[in-house]
Design a protein around this nucleic acid. Structure first.
Lengths: 193, 193
DNA sequence: TTGCATAGTTGAACTTGTTCAACTCTTTTA
DNA sequence: TAAAAGAGTTGAACAAGTTCAACTATGCAA
């Protein structure tokens, strides 16, 4: 019940027996996060990997000049973590903040190690998931290099309408890598056409 | 002998027995590529995954306006492929071109499938390699959003001096996401300081 | 060795995107 | 429910980066 969405998500990538799914799910503990609360803050070490059951999160960094840059958004059925901090156990550059009241399933780093040892096929699952994520990052870099800010904006709202409608323009602009003032001007000019 | 560098590279990520290493290596076939020749061209489907033994490659795309955008460079001890085209068996957006006479080890898609079945721990190897690659992409996106063109240039030549010295400024600029004229101006102003 | 293609430089005009400040509108909190 | 904080808009001045064109330098092939 609680783990239904997780099971569905996993089975999109790889088939498991019910026994295996039960083992996997047993390590993922539910956690409720209130709007505006943080699951991870810049400077601390990421000790979990998470899967979103309800709500929406923003994963972002604040640079020396104080500008926010959003890496990605994670709503229902998305995974979230700082993989850099989680893998290398170094202080994170990222903040993970709930944009609304949310519910996640978390697996701790130590439990993930146990799971890898207990169920070797889990490597295949995360191998496939990581490779799909690599494809997404590669495509995003190409878009960042070849599209204008306006094209990137239109691509974003067309590709992720269910996420975009929840977001303020300030947050969308920080994902696109532009200022919110400029996004406002893009939208104004776009309407006139 | 031929596979020594590959073995060393693999063992940086995960330990294998000699028997296992022999199996893995048996699927990687050497191929010599001459300067300026292509290992993959835009529009064709990527049927291999490669590891560079000698030389240097550029992985880039050409957009509708005719502008080149470089995803990355791969010299000795680097992996190279279009993971998007390889995984999804769709026409590639990328070109992989030798910048000098080069030598690679290639594993075909079908052999990789055989290898995954024959040696399940190979999933763990590629899981780890993919996760490290994800870390690199994540860091690059943050740099692209938070650093100026000049800062990105300095970061690149400091981080990859052995690659950078082989490259023309035109190729470096297409990696940084700026025009080669602008890179020329950046370098001029930088020298004066 | 000449000639041709490619790489790099520079300047001027231009476009894209930023900064700052002022203002309006909406949402949150006391 | 008032006030404060945050989100969005707009304009003007500015900075970052592009485009185009002309030129120089370098490497490569006949």
């Amino acid at each position: 019940m609680l783990h239904d969405l997780l099971v569905q998500n996993i089975e999109k990538h790889l088939q498991f027996s019910n026994t295996e799914l039960d083992i996997i799910c047993s390590y993922f503990k539910p956690k409720v996060i209130q709007k505006r609360d943080f699951l991870l803050t810049q400077g601390s070490i990421c000790k979990f990997e998470g899967f979103v059951l309800e709500g929406c999160f923003r994963i972002f960094t604040i640079d020396k000049k104080g500008n926010e840059s959003t890496l990605y958004f994670a709503s229902k059925d998305w995974w979230l973590m700082d993989i850099d901090s989680f893998m290398n156990q170094i202080p994170s550059d990222l903040n993970i903040q709930a944009l609304e009241d949310s519910k996640v399933l978390l697996i701790s780093r130590s439990d993930k190690t146990v799971l890898y040892n207990q169920l070797p096929t889990i490597d295949k699952l995360f191998r496939i998931m990581s490779q799909k994520a690599l494809v997404a990052w590669q495509r995003r870099l190409i878009r960042n290099h070849t599209l204008t800010a306006k094209e990137r904006y239109l691509h974003f709202i067309e590709t992720y309408p269910e996420i975009a409608y929840k977001l303020t323009d300030k947050k969308i602009s920080s994902y696109l890598g532009i200022t919110h003032e400029f996004l406002s001007k893009i939208k104004k000019l776009h309407k006139k056409e």
